[in-house]
Nucleic acid binder design. Structure first.
Lengths: 165, 165
DNA sequence: GACCTGAGTACAAGAAAGTAAACCTAGCGG
DNA sequence: CCGCTAGGTTTACTTTCTTGTACTCAGGTC
């Protein structure tokens, strides 16, 4: 990745989508909660069992994820049991899949268990395994070295060095 | 995303590439440091200026990233100045690009600044803007709803409920 | 030889986040 | 109507992070 122009030292760093995403999902456990739910675990106590994280943190993370529309709660009732609630991933939550699968892919490549990856993702429709890729609008595969970073419409500089009037 | 089989309640969660990746880059500031370096900021004091994070944390994050081979230090010398060191991203670091651009993409979609994104990434070779996509080996574009999660070679169950001999 | 700059290290004090474990509450089954 | 279970709260404690200053060290400038 290389900057196309100088995004450099007077750039206003407060408008950053990466930072804003991390505000929502950057805390410890948050992405792992999401992972578990993707993997099919949906109830509070099961999540707690799988993750081994403190219950209050789990509760807090779930609340935040629901608040941000990444998860939703559903109530359901099994025969002869009282109604329960469980968590499901929304479309907004599913849009985090590229990012999370990107982390998974990196871990598989560089920090894998000797035995290999614990899970493998496939395309439901054709059975082939998945990769996360950066693509351009003309559908070229774009390796990181060919990424060019440039200013967008929300680009700002901070405290433009204007002289006193 | 849906599990193909029950990865469920007796799954051994210690073999997880997502968790292992987050051990390296999951702390506060780490991915933002990487962002700055991708954006062309490479010197300690400049990184400090841009991020506004405590110097000791910046030093610690940089050390860890270098330790893990995501960054490397280079020394360089400008005319008539003494030699300095700066940080550059390695190939291993560049492999985090899909994950980080995935976070960026999500932020652009759901938490954008009113003015729009601060940066836009293009394909250097053709100028077209980028997206991060999940693709299968047969090159289908795979939306999250078509991702099927199954056990891999490193899949383990924990404390298999074996009877006493 | 005194001072400046870049690249850190060292320390202290307070705030925030994370951890551990006990406690609470609503239904159901007996 | 007692206890069990799922789904949380509360409270106490520990670790990290933040804020902010001070110090080091090397090479170059004045």
């Amino acid at each position: 990745m290389a900057p196309i122009t100088d995004l450099r030292l007077d750039r206003d760093t407060t408008n950053c989508s990466i930072a804003r995403t991390l505000e929502v999902v950057g805390e410890k456990w948050t992405l792992l909660v999401l992972r578990e739910i993707w993997y099919g675990v949906s109830r509070f106590s099961d999540l707690h069992k799988m993750l081994g994280c403190p219950r209050n943190l789990l509760a807090e993370r779930l609340r935040k994820l629901v608040e941000h529309g990444i998860l939703a709660t559903e109530t359901y009732q099994e025969d002869g049991a009282r109604s329960r609630s469980r968590y499901v991933v929304t479309a907004k939550g599913n849009d985090l899949a590229p990012a999370v699968l990107g982390l998974l892919q990196w871990g598989d490549k560089y920090r894998a268990d000797p035995a290999g990856p614990a899970v493998i993702n496939h395309h439901r429709d054709c059975g082939a395994p998945l990769t996360v890729q950066v693509r351009c609008a003309r559908d070229h595969h774009v390796p990181a070295a060919e990424v060019e970073v440039g200013p967008g419409p929300g680009f700002r500089t901070k405290a433009a060095p204007e002289r006193a009037t």
